[in-house]
Simulated scan of single mutants.
Amino acid sequence: MSATQAWERYAAGARPRRQVNAAGASTWLNWTQYPDHGPDEALFGEVRGRRAVELGSGSGSNLAHLATLGAVCTGVDLAPSRTAAATTTWGHLPNLEFVTADAVDYLTDCQAAFDIVYSIFGAVWFTDPVILLPLVCQHMRSGGVFAFSHLPAATPSVTSGGVVSKWHYPADQWSNMLAAAGFQDVTTTIIPAPDTDKPGTLVVRALAG
C-alpha cells in the first residue's frame, strides 16, 4: 500500500464536518480535536489579503474560513478524494484552490511566498521535520506565521515502518527545531481538553525570519 492509498483509506472513514458550529457560523477555524474549542484565526494576526497554504487540508473547512475572511488560499492534501470533496464543497469561494500533492513535493516545486502556513493535525505531524521545516521557512515572507497542532507528547517518538510515519515531538523539541530551521519568536501552548479526562492539544506558532 502506498502513502496515497493509506490516506485515501483514512479519508473514506472521515466524518463530515457539521454544517454550522455552536455559534451558528457556517465556516470556522478549529485547532483542536474537540468541536468549538481552542483558538481561532487570531493566531495568524491579520488575514485579509494574505497568502495562506494549509498542509494537509483534508475537507477544506478550515481553509475555507480563511478564504471568507479575505485570504488567498491554497490547500494541499495527498488524498485525491479529499481534494475533490473540498473543491466540490468550497470551490465556489473566491481565491481558494485545492491541489493533490505531498507537502514536500508541493513546496519544492512551488514558486510562491506565503504569509501564512499552517497544519492542523496534518502534514507537519507526518513529514520529516528536518526536511519540511527549512522548506516551509524558505517559502515564507519575513514575519509570516507558521502554526500547527497535534496531540501533546511527553517524550520524542517517531512511528515508522509502514507507509505513513509520524513525528511526535514535545514542545521544547519543536522549539529547538524551528529555531534551527530559521524561525523566530516560537511559542508553544498545550490547550487543555474541555473534559479533563481527555488529552489536550499542542499548538505551535513561529514567525519566519
Rank of each mutant, 00 (worst) to 15 (best):
T83V: 07
T87S: 00
S57W: 05
V72F: 08
T27C: 05
L135E: 14
S119T: 06
N62K: 14
F98C: 00
Q111F: 06
A84D: 01
K166W: 08
L107N: 08
L107A: 08
E54L: 04
V76M: 10
S119I: 04
Q138S: 11
T100K: 06
L132R: 06
A67H: 00
G58Y: 03
D36C: 06
A154Q: 15
R82I: 00
D109N: 06
S26I: 14
L151I: 13
A67Y: 02
V72M: 10
S142D: 15
L66G: 03
G91D: 01
T155G: 03
A64M: 02
A103H: 10
G144K: 10
F44C: 02
C137T: 15
S81V: 07
V99E: 09
M140D: 11
L133S: 03
A153S: 11
W28F: 05
F121A: 07
Q19N: 15
G162A: 04
T32P: 10
N95G: 05
L96Y: 02
A153F: 12
T155N: 11
H92R: 02
E97W: 01
G91V: 01
E41T: 11
S142L: 12
L29V: 12
G49H: 10
F126R: 05
V20C: 07
S81M: 01
R48P: 06
A23K: 13
W31I: 12
G162P: 03
T108D: 13
S81G: 04
A101C: 03
R51Y: 06
V20I: 09
K166A: 12
V158Y: 02
